[in-house]
């Protein structure tokens, strides 16, 4: 399943830029959507996509063939997103948020370009709420939830990408889901 990517990687290692361009074509949308959901900012998301591929290119020699290529590139992309989120705002605990019920929401502090094209793409009120609910998740839960729901990954795949035990991922999905359930309570 992953053989096409592996073949392209082998060619790109030898300096074949066209093979690398094909890798970019295969993954730019996936990484963009991951980054866009993580950062809610189109410009930043495209920066992350660019940085991801630059890092992939520089580390082609270090890519281990036994690993799925998608896992590797998602790991790079996810880490870049998390770095950006960390620089952006102070981290806060999800537990604190959950016990204080409707406290100050994290998303109030996150810059977002909601008023740009996204505002007419999010047509329904429900869509807007889901968007805001995901945005308000603390980074470590946000990452897991985006990989789980918006990238359609299994718990095992998420665990491979984030290099964390499956049990940790499971706990985070559970907590993230509870968090979103409360956020969306009015809608459901």
């Amino acid at each position: 399943m992953d053989t096409l990517e592996k073949r392209l990687v082998r060619l790109a290692r030898k300096g074949d830029t066209r093979a690398f361009a094909e890798i970019v074509e295969l993954y730019k949308d996936k990484i963009f959507h991951l980054a866009y959901r993580m950062l809610s900012n189109r410009h930043e998301a495209e920066d992350v996509v660019q940085d991801t591929f630059l890092r992939v290119y520089r580390n082609l020699d270090r890519y281990d063939d036994n690993q799925k290529f998608s896992t590797w590139i998602y790991r790079i992309g996810t880490n870049l997103c998390i770095d950006r989120l960390r620089k952006r705002k102070p981290s806060y605990s999800l537990d604190a948020e959950m016990t204080e019920q409707e406290g100050i929401d994290g998303y109030a502090m996150i810059p977002s370009d909601d008023r740009t094209p996204e505002s007419y793409l999010i047509v329904s009120e429900t869509q807007r709420m889901v968007h805001e609910a995901i945005n308000s998740l603390p980074a470590k839960y946000k990452t897991v939830m985006i990989l789980r729901y918006l990238q359609d990954m299994s718990l095992q795949e998420i665990s491979d990408v984030l290099d964390m035990p499956v049990t940790t991922i499971k706990t985070r999905v559970h907590r993230g889901r509870e968090f979103l359930r409360k956020k969306l309570e009015r809608k459901i």
Partner: peptide, 22 residues
């Protein structure tokens, strides 16, 4: 269900993104 449904509202990337990366 809402989260899975949200998946479909995806934005396209800029046309020149590949060229910029390359």
């Amino acid at each position: 269900r809402l989260l899975y449904g949200f998946n479909h509202r995806l934005q396209p990337t800029s046309d020149d993104l590949t060229d910029r990366i390359m």
